[in-house]
Design a protein around this nucleic acid. Structure first.
Length: 480
RNA sequence: CGGGGCGUGGCUCAGCCUGGUAGAGCGCCUGGUUCGGGACCAGGAGGUCGAAGGUUCGAAUCCUUCCGCCCCGACCA
């Protein structure tokens, strides 16, 4: 009996995560390039499915895809004071090109607000040019000190939406529309429940007026910021001189938004559903939804089994694992680690009985179903898996959300939590949106994840740090 | 940047202390027997031991310098 190549979650959650990503064949560290990874077919296929889900929604709401240069003149970053301060430490800069020192270095984009601001200024003159709704699928580079596959890599893939509007109200609507869209994809497609809310002033995007995010809870109780949507106000409009003439004939700066989700979502997906046996992928994002493993002993059986296997697999769109020289057992483990939602087993026994064995990846439950009902069965089970994964994640979020009424209580709950040991919670506490509060939490490495849009608790109360009355409880947690 | 670990066939590692013909398991190739939860037998291919310099008759092993990667913290989607 071979030993599992996957560290159990309870032993070391961070090691488990790495093992699952590697064994699930999602990605591997590039090694030759610091902090970067190679996304492998099984991982990239998930990204493509996510892209499709998101892209369809962007287009349905009037956004158009564009592509902007990877390299940005260094001076652009400096035009917005907060922005340059926020991003400077993590910039990769190109100083030599074509064998010559550049007069002005280029930065490799960490995000594209600045270069897009430049072009918006060129393209926008009138209120008739607004709203301008742009999205870009791209790679970005942020020289992070600490990287983890998918969750934080030096280079990562994402989409960044950039829009310009005539009024602040319109921009705010856009910001929240996108936030809702992100939450819908997270919950309905990824089966990953999220909390929608606003970031505190200390946690907001560098250069934004306000930032909103969706926050998910991983199995170790740590929070993962799964998507952000920023109300940029007129900050970038002013920095890049993006002016338009309104209906009254007056000049005004545009109101901008930006928003993004990244390949980090795949990390969230892994840490939401997978188990000690490996990857578990919700059916809507599974590159392979079902695999049929044929079983036979003798050559006489082989022909009949393979014929039936291919016929049935074709009918339901399953892949047949007819690799020679691998025992069925080895194949079961193979697909289990890769998170395929349904594995079907078909052997002489089934041919005789007219049944076929269907195994669910999430629960491990095995049942024999009549071959004639296979198609309907697979459909139903896939839907059930999708729902059950969401329900389980939702329940876990609920079970691990607690209320605290003093800063000591918050520290007691979160103080010892680490990504490795787990035990994290979402702590609902009354805290003012004040840098002093963020700083206080930082002493034990916790952060305000967001100020929830929806108050599911007891309304207003006194801030645990300043004593001032605040409207509602905020989500405090340790985060990735 | 601080702490820790590691660079030896594709992968995981042993060998280094005490210098003397480069090893194991897994994987891979060939043939055969197997096949309802990680099969077995036989044969085979595959390595300038991270790099440079030094000590030595002789270096994977000792010395010096450098490079890289991973993990843990501070920074962050």
């Amino acid at each position: 009996m071979a030993q599992s190549p996957i560290t159990p979650r309870l032993a070391d959650f961070a090691a488990w995560y790495q093992d699952v990503v590697l064994q699930g064949d999602l990605a591997e560290p590039a090694e030759i390039v610091k902090g970067c990874m190679v996304i492998k077919p099984n991982g990239y296929a998930i990204w493509e499915l996510l892209q499709r889900e998101l892209d369809n929604r962007f287009k349905a709401t009037g956004h158009k895809n564009m592509y902007f240069p990877l390299l940005i003149p260094q001076s652009f970053l400096k035009k917005e004071a907060e922005h340059v301060e926020g991003f400077s430490p993590e910039l990769a800069v190109v100083t030599i090109a074509g064998g010559k020192e550049l007069e002005e270095p280029y930065v490799i984009r960490p995000t594209s607000e600045t270069i897009i601001g430049h072009f918006f200024a060129k393209w926008i003159q009138s209120w008739r040019d607004l709203p301008m709704l742009v999205n870009q699928w791209a790679n970005v580079v942020r020289w992070e000190l600490r990287t983890r596959m998918f969750l934080r890599t030096t280079e990562f893939l994402w989409q960044e939406g950039h829009t310009a509007h005539a009024t602040h109200e319109e921009a705010q609507e856009e910001v929240l529309r996108i936030l809702d869209m992100y939450a819908e994809v997270a919950e309905d497609v990824m089966a990953m429940p999220v909390i929608k809310g606003m970031k505190t002033q200390s946690e907001k995007f560098a250069g934004a007026l306000r930032s909103y995010s969706i926050e998910a809870m991983m199995q170790n109780g740590l929070a993962l910021q799964a998507g952000t949507s920023h109300d940029l106000g007129q900050n970038f409009g002013k920095a890049f001189d993006v002016k338009f003439q309104n209906k009254e004939g007056q000049l005004d700066y545009v109101w901008q938004t930006s928003w993004g989700v990244s390949t980090r979502l795949i990390g969230g997906l892994v840490m939401s559903h997978s188990d000690d046996k490996g990857l578990v992928i919700p059916p809507k994002l599974a590159p392979v939804k079902s695999v049929l493993v044929p079983i036979y002993r003798k050559d006489e059986e082989k022909g009949a089994v393979l014929e039936a296997a291919h016929r049935m697999a074709k009918d339901i769109g399953a892949e047949v694992d007819d690799r020679e020289g691998q025992s069925p057992g080895a194949k079961f483990f193979h697909w289990e680690r890769r998170g395929v939602p349904i594995v079907l087993e078909l052997g002489p026994r089934d041919l005789a009985s007219g049944g076929i064995v269907l195994k669910r990846r999430d629960t491990g439950a095995k049942e024999s179903v009549p071959q004639s009902e296979l198609k309907a069965c697979v459909e139903t089970v896939l839907q059930t898996i999708q729902q059950d994964l969401y329900a389980a994640a939702k329940q876990r979020l609920k079970d691990n959300t607690v209320v605290a009424n003093s800063i000591e209580a918050v520290e007691l709950i979160l103080g010892d939590v680490t990504a490795e040991k787990g035990g994290g919670k979402f702590v609902m506490a009354h805290l003012k949106d004040d840098p002093a509060c963020d700083a206080k939490l930082k002493t034990f490495k916790a952060t305000v994840r967001c100020i929830p849009q929806l108050d599911e608790y007891d309304g207003s109360g006194k801030c645990l740090v300043t004593g001032e009355t605040v409207e509602r409880r905020v989500v405090v947690a340790k985060a990735y």
